[in-house]
Each structure stands twice: as structure tokens, then as C-alpha cells.
Design a binder for these strands. Structure first.
Lengths: 219, 219
DNA sequence: GCCCAAAAGTTAATAGTGCTGACATAAGTG
DNA sequence: CACTTATGTCAGCACTATTAACTTTTGGGC
């Protein structure tokens, strides 16, 4: 949109009309999420950080949840972009590229644990469920496309979607366990990135089920 | 109708010394977690349900967190027991048994989402970290033992712990995504149990790394 | 410029939360 | 019985989310 920031100094001083409170609140909330986790966060804190009273946010958001949803949406966009970049650098349609994408997923989760948890957490109170769903779908689509690309290149007519779902599942599990510190308390020396690389290869190379016992439900 | 003046209904009546408030609070909290998720729960609600004032819990727990930790501990015990039962029924040291264990894990997660999230969620504010750690370790130990048993039986000297970690990771990922409804928004018809069974076989049969591919160091 | 409506803040108030300290009462023991 | 201890209540504090009513900026039309 149009930007209208002409005479703004370095930081908006006491201007009584904070210029862009919406953005300020979002970034403040994000910072607090990083600092105190998804629970230790309070809207009032974000207000203080942005230099406004606790009633101010309600001119920009319906309620607290709506701020979080905005952050979730941006999180999905960011994750999708990071994945795309990783696969582009690692080599599209290659094991390396797909592995890089998985590790990018992990890095995002570890880098922004609170946002990651919000993105995949409690969706019971969503008001923009549709947008969030679409973001998530978009995010997974890249994985599927890459796997399909790889499969096509290597001849075996694997069900790309099924394999992509397995990869996603594994990488998501690894990210969750790593970010929650669960590996550290049961397997201290684990190299998660290597594990992701190994299993990605294995799941891709294994291809479709060689010994699939009577696949019941056709999609 | 012939209940004399002591018309005690289901609950021990107003005895001013609630007999076993500790347990009552734990079960009330658990119910609320199931009903409203890990966030929509409030200690005051649990008090109301147990029929006491909001100050009463502090005679039994240091703070809110301590109740939740108790629930986490019991959750781990329950999960471990369920896994043990599943593997015993499915056949110890067999693919079937190990698969059954994974599905049992999933069932627990789906059956008690809020408890599951607490168990593997934010551990930043733990006061009994040691006990919780030990519970988690115990829980994973069974998986490792089973995999080791399977490996021994089938001759290949695989690193049981590494394989067990992979299985755990995958099953945990599947459980998380299923319980958070993430599969439903990107892969509606997915049969998660079948996927777990397939991948469990694959990861077990593949054995140790035959080749260490593409570890080119993703930095 | 002036006027006015809308946008974007503020103050003040409500209801609900976790938690604490001071008190009250039940239960168990000498 | 008296006395101690466990286990409740009550009143109150600090904090949150949210709303209602008011005030200040802002920007557009005259």
C-alpha cells in the first residue's frame, strides 16, 4: 500500500497518534513471544512496549487472538519462503534439495519456537480459519511438488503426495521434539540434522511400498 | 428417597474438609483440560468444580504449574503403560508389536490432546524437571528395547537407539499433526494408522544406514 | 484558511485470574 | 480436655482482557 511516513523521526516520539501501531503491536508481540514463550506473553506487555495504553489495540484488532492469527499467517509465509529458498539452493528435484527443505523447516521451528507452536497448535479458536488453512496448504504443496519432481525424474511412479506426507510428518516430529527439548533429555548427543538427512533419503529412495498389502482406500 | 438428613449425592457434601481435595483438583483440572484445551483452563474453574474457594489449592500445591506437572507425570505413566500393553498384545520384538506401540502412542495423543501437549510442550517453567525427564526417558526406553530386541532377532547389528529415535520422531510427528488437525486441512482422507504401520516397517526393515548419502554439510 | 467526520488515541470501569496473609475450623493426638 | 496441625474461608493485591465514553489528530471538502 501507500506509505505515508514523511516526517517520522527515528522513532515515533510522543505523537499521540503512533503512526503505525498495528505493525508496532505485531512486532512487539512477536518479540515477547520469543522472549517469554507463547504463554508468558501478555497483550498489556506489548502495549507498554509500543508505548500505548492497553485499550489502544482494539482500534486495530478485534481481540488478542486476532493479533496472534496475523502472526501465524506471516509465520506460514516466512516458512514457505525459507523452504523455497532452501530447495532452490540445494537443488530442485534432488534429494539434497528436499533434505535442505526439511532442515529449513527445523531451523524455522527452532528459531521461532513460539510462533511455530502457534502455527501448528490450538486451532480451536480461530476466526480466520480459512486463511490459515490456505497458508498451511500452500506450505505443504511445495514439499509435494518437490517430491513429485524427484519421482518423475527417477522414473518410479510413486505416489508423491503419500511420500511428501511422510517426509513432512518426520520433519515435523523432529522439529517438535527438538524445539521442546525432548531429545535433550533422552538422547543428548543426537544430530537432528543428520537424522533428517538420513531419513529423507531413506523415505525417498524406498519409493512406494514394494510390499504394500492390499491398499484399502483409494483416494 | 429414604436418605436421612445426610443427603450426600455423588459428591462428598459440604464437609468443610473435602476429604481428598488434592485428587479432586487433579481430576477436575484434567476434565477442564479435555473440555477447553490447555489454554482455556483456569484454576478457579477447577476450584468451582471441586466446590472450594480459589485459595484452597495452595494448601496442596505450591502453584498452578505444580498441578499441571502432576498431570504430566501421570500422563507419562499412562502412556508408558498403554504402549507396554500394546506391544505385549502385538507381539514383543516383532514389527507388529512395534507398530502397535506406535499406534498406541497416537491413540493416547488423540484421546487426550491437552495432556499430550502439556507433556511435550513448554518445559521452561518446570519445577520437577528431574521427575518429568525421568518419566519421558522411561517412556522412550521401551521403544528402544523393542527395537533392540527386533534387531537382535534379525541378525543385523543396527544401532537400536538410532532406529528407535527415528520411529519415535515419526510417530510423534504423526500424532502431533493429527491431534492439531493439520492433516485434515491438507490431506483429508489420510489413514494415519496405516501410514504409521507402513513407515514403521520401512524404518525397521531398512536397518542401519547402508550408505551415508548427501551429508554434504548443510552448514 | 475553517469545519467536520472519522480514525486513533486516552481514561475509567468491569470481570476474571493467580496468589498471599490473616483468620477459622475440623481432625487427630497427647 | 487442650493443643497442634491440616485444611479450609475471606479479603485483598496485582495483573489481564475487554468495553464504554471521551478527547485529540488527521485529512478532505468548502
Amino acid at each position: 500500500m501507500a506509505q505515508s511516513k514523511e516526517r517520522t523521526p527515528v522513532r515515533p516520539k510522543k505523537r499521540f497518534h503512533h503512526g503505525d501501531l498495528r505493525e508496532a503491536l505485531i512486532t512487539a508481540t512477536r518479540e515477547l513471544l520469543i522472549e517469554h514463550g507463547p504463554d508468558g506473553f501478555s497483550l498489556a506487555d506489548a502495549c507498554r512496549r509500543a508505548g500505548v495504553t492497553t485499550a489502544a489495540p482494539y482500534k486495530h484488532f478485534r481481540d488478542k487472538q486476532e493479533i496472534l492469527e496475523e502472526i501465524v499467517l506471516r509465520g506460514f509465509a516466512e516458512l514457505t519462503a525459507a523452504n523455497a529458498k532452501a530447495v532452490a539452493e540445494g537443488g530442485p528435484g534432488t534429494i539434497r534439495g528436499i533434505t535442505a527443505m526439511g532442515i529449513s523447516y527445523l531451523d524455522f521451528a527452532v528459531g521461532q519456537p513460539a510462533v511455530f507452536r502457534l502455527m501448528f497448535g490450538h486451532k480451536s479458536e480461530l476466526k480466520q480459519a480459512k486463511q490459515v488453512d490456505e497458508s498451511g496448504r500452500q506450505c505443504l504443496k511445495h514439499v509435494i511438488d518437490e517430491v513429485a519432481s524427484y519421482s518423475r525424474k527417477h522414473g518410479h511412479s510413486a505416489d508423491a503426495e503419500a511420500i511428501a506426507l511422510r517426509l513432512w510428518t518426520f520433519v515435523h516430529g523432529a522439529s517438535s521434539l527438538e524445539l521442546d527439548g525432548d531429545y535433550q533429555r533422552v538422547a543428548r548427543g543426537l544430530d537432528v540434522r543428520k537424522m533428517i538427512a538420513d531419513v529423507t533419503s531413506k523415505l525417498l529412495l524406498a519409493g512406494p511400498d514394494k510390499r504394500a498389502p492390499a491398499r484399502g482406500g483409494p483416494r
